[in-house]
Amino acid sequence: MSVFISFILAIISSMLIDNVVLSRFYGICPFLGVSRKVKSSLGMGIAVVFVIVLATVICWPLYNYVLVPAGIAFMDTVAYILVIASLVQLVGLFIKKYSPSLYKSLGIYLPLITTNCAVLGVAQSNTDQGLNFLQSLANGVGTSIGFLLIIVTFSCIRTRLESANTPKAFKGLPIALITAAIMAIAFMGLQGLFSGIIV
């Protein structure tokens, strides 16, 4: 039971307290690039959840059961990026075959995920920190759901911002970044959420 609880806590902590975008700075490019419309940000977020969870599930065994026994642990970055790139292709093909409607809405975002640092960042930091499989999975799930949460929230705010009367120099990206800053301050308030629970 305690394993289960710590698994859930790890998911929530990497989702909210250590949010990918707002405190670890992974995936800022899609965060700024694909957040103009709520619908497209939702598509991007779901595609990222897909790929991150799958990449975590594949990369962890790959590192611990293939690269380390073979004595080529230093090849981790190359191996991960190949796994991620082919995974993105594969997921794309799979979705295209079994759910054309989902493919229609996710299709254009899938290639973009290869260069989303969140995916490689999660895989890399899992093995860099020496997490076990369950912890890695919790990190992957929490991070990707945190990304989905933030990008959708942010796009909702951004659609409102479009019509807001901002100073001319701040139009577009600068005001979006200020918004992100305010969101980051809000998320700072969640720090220490579990300080009483995790001993």
Binding site: S23, F25, P167, K168, A169, F170, G172, L177, A181, A184
Partner: peptide
């Protein structure tokens, strides 16, 4: 903090704009 990074980046972009 992370928030400051966003603010600084936003300000630099705004000055350029």
């Amino acid at each position: 903090n992370p928030a400051g990074a966003f603010i600084v980046f936003a300000t630099i972009l705004a000055v350029i704009a």
